[in-house]
């Protein structure tokens, strides 16, 4: 915020610049189109055999939406590199956590159904 030439105290008397919002609406339309595509896929790829492929597409699209929200709306793309990595590297641990525990969940379910249903 140091770039502002605004006075330290008192009413702001300077010229108010014209809004620069083209990039905001561009990001908005990207998010809307991805969301619309998600709905289209949810209702067109209903066959059980395609479930894995469908879910993979959903996850890729979700990460894409996250990229635009965090990168543009939260401005992270325009911060210094060290801040970008400080935020992104810890979240990478979550990916490992999800993979490990989803695998574990399937195993727990299998064990429970074999131990108690026969």
């Amino acid at each position: 915020m140091s770039a502002h030439a605004a006075p330290e105290h008192g009413e702001y008397t300077g010229e108010i610049a014209k809004p620069n919002t083209a990039w905001i609406w561009k990001t908005f339309w990207i998010l809307v189109i991805i969301t619309a595509a998600e709905f289209a896929i949810a209702f067109s790829m209903t066959s059980p055999g395609l479930r894995t492929l469908r879910n993979t597409i959903f996850i890729v699209m979700t990460i894409l939406k996250a990229f635009f929200i965090v990168g543009e709306f939260m401005h992270l793309k325009h911060e210094v590199k060290s801040l970008i990595w400080t935020i992104l590297v810890p979240t990478a641990l979550l990916v490992w956590l999800v993979v490990a525990l989803v695998t574990e969940g399937s195993y727990v379910g299998e064990v429970l159904s074999h131990m108690f249903s026969s």
């Binding site: 999800v98 989803v102 695998t103 399937s106 379910g109 159904s113």
Partner: peptide, 15 residues
């Protein structure tokens, strides 16, 4: 992340 991971585990535990 913990909430959604728990969701993943519990969902895969069920049929």
């Amino acid at each position: 992340g913990a909430f959604l991971t728990a969701y993943g585990l519990i969902r895969h535990k069920h049929g």
